[in-house]
């Protein structure tokens, strides 16, 4: 069973679950992977990677959306458990927890990302 490039380095921490057709986290594995996803419509969703498959469909747990604006700092909206369809995903980034903790999101101002135009 082959998987997408970037995610395959994580595969040893995941089990292929045939009934589900997806790679999911093994219960006994302690290490958690926090990832930041940029979607095609320009949203930024951060959460713990729970599963993925060949089509880059992704399961995120404890997820939240980071809403950027020029008027105020970054707003965080709680989303919880989420499945994001691969079609709608642009970037999957590994979140560096230390770097992220050093960021002051309340002072960060930016335009929201533009949507992907194919």
């Amino acid at each position: 069973m082959s998987t997408g490039t970037g995610l395959e380095t994580l595969v040893d921490r995941f089990f292929y679950f045939p009934g589900f057709g997806m790679f999911v986290t093994a219960e006994h594995v302690e290490q958690i992977e926090t990832i930041s996803i940029i979607t095609n419509d320009g949203r930024n969703i951060v959460g713990v990677l729970k599963g993925f498959d060949q089509a880059t469909n992704i399961i995120l747990d404890e997820s939240h959306e980071r809403v950027y604006s020029t008027k105020e700092g970054v707003q965080q909206l709680v989303l919880g458990l989420y499945i994001i369809r691969g079609d709608n995903i642009s970037i999957v980034g590994e979140l560096d927890e230390e770097l992220d903790a050093s960021l002051d999101l309340s002072k960060l101002r930016a335009h929201p990302l533009k949507p992907v135009i194919h």
Binding site: N44, S90, V92, G93, L113, V116
Partner: peptide, 18 residues
Amino acid sequence: DKYPHMLSVRNCFIRGSV
């Protein structure tokens, strides 16, 4: 400065379609 959305990302996977 224009795109601070990925400041805490050092490794990333980019979907070929985008």
